[in-house]
């Protein structure tokens, strides 16, 4: 177990290293940030001074090693655009994205898993077929379009919910969150729904597929023959067994949404990390883009590790063993 953990950690470091090279080269090839940053009225001398100050006069490998050296000491560079450390900038945006994603996934699984179970257990009935068909719709409507329709209906026409922004926040352990105020919740409602809908569809389909398969398994038939109550069968035998793929997907989705809720955040002007990423890419704010990708890779690596540990907890057959 300890060796396994060590091995996984080593792998993770290798992944982070490879990603750092790839992303560094990628942002380097896009364009020169000086041309976007500096005042167009700057003289040639001011421009040259600026390039030297940002280290852009160095060859790419020298820039990379400077970055690497600083990164190893925990310094991911300073944002060209905002003038403050890139990591601080990203982390300051994290709580907003975090609460959005957590609420969306909670909503999606709280509604999706029961519905999925219901559908899976009534495989083939008309109601079940209807749910399955509409779930395809929920899955395939583009996020930005859905977002705009939500805004149009609930903000512009009905005037029930605010169209964008984060609303009032309160500090919880020193971190600002919106979900503890009414105003914050009203701002959260639409982005959460927008983000939850495709995941809701995903949860329904995943649970339904698992449940309809599990229903016909020998252990379920045996339990039934033994006279176990059907509620207990569902809870103890079916649900527990189909949770593994669901948790895997939830883990992957969590990482993906934290990193790339870009569209939802842009449509609802939600001040999260995704919106920061997209602006930074447009402005060629290289340190922020690189730090962002590194941070996300880090989160993915950690989430995957946790998912593996969760398997072991849920399924006694899964053993965490090292590859020799």
């Amino acid at each position: 177990m300890l060796l396994y953990t060590l091995q996984r950690l080593l792998q993770s470091v290798a992944v982070l290293f490879a990603v750092s090279i790839a992303v560094f080269l990628a942002v380097y090839s896009v364009g020169n940030p000086v041309d976007l940053l500096i005042s167009p009225e700057a003289t040639q001398a001011e421009r040259a001074a600026m390039i030297a100050k940002m280290g852009l006069d160095q060859p790419v490998w020298a820039q990379y090693f400077t970055f690497l050296g600083n990164a190893l000491q925990g310094d991911m560079g300073t944002s060209f655009v905002h003038g403050i450390p890139a990591l601080q900038l990203i982390l300051s945006r994290m709580p907003a994205t975090f609460e959005l994603v957590v609420l969306a996934l909670l909503l999606a699984s709280a509604i999706g898993i029961p519905i999925g179970l219901w559908v899976g257990l009534r495989d083939g009935s008309r109601g079940a077929r209807m749910v399955m068909t509409s779930s395809i719709l929920g899955y395939s409507i583009p996020s930005f379009w859905k977002g705009m329709v939500l805004i149009l209906v609930f903000a512009v026409w009905l005037n029930w919910l605010p169209a964008s922004g984060r609303g009032d926040t309160v500090l919880l352990l020193g971190v600002p969150f919106s979900f503890l105020t009414f105003d914050g919740l009203s701002h959260l409602a639409m982005p959460v729904i927008n983000l939850a809908i495709p995941n809701l569809a995903l949860m329904i389909r995943l649970t339904a597929a698992g449940a309809s398969e599990a229903v016909h398994q020998d252990y379920v038939l045996f339990a039934r023959a033994k006279g176990v109550r059907s509620k207990r069968i569902i809870r103890r035998h079916i649900l527990r067994n189909i949770l593994i793929p669901i948790i895997t997907v939830l883990g992957v989705e969590f990482g993906a949404l934290i990193a790339f809720s870009t569209i939802t955040e842009t449509v609802f002007a939600w001040p999260g990390m995704g919106k920061l990423l997209i602006t930074s890419i447009y402005q060629l704010d290289r340190p922020v883009v690189v730090a962002y990708v590194m941070l996300i890779t880090f989160i993915f690596v950690v989430v995957n590790l946790l998912v593996d540990f969760a398997y072991a907890a849920l399924d006694p057959r899964v053993k965490l063993v090292e590859n020799m």
């Binding site: 705009m148 805004i151 149009l152 903000a155 512009v156 005037n159 605010p162 169209a163 964008s164 922004g165 842009t266 449509v267 609802f268 002007a269 602006t279």
Partner: peptide
Amino acid sequence: VPSDGPRLAGLLS
């Protein structure tokens, strides 16, 4: 609110 659509929606709402 950098996107045009949401900014206008914010005004209208």
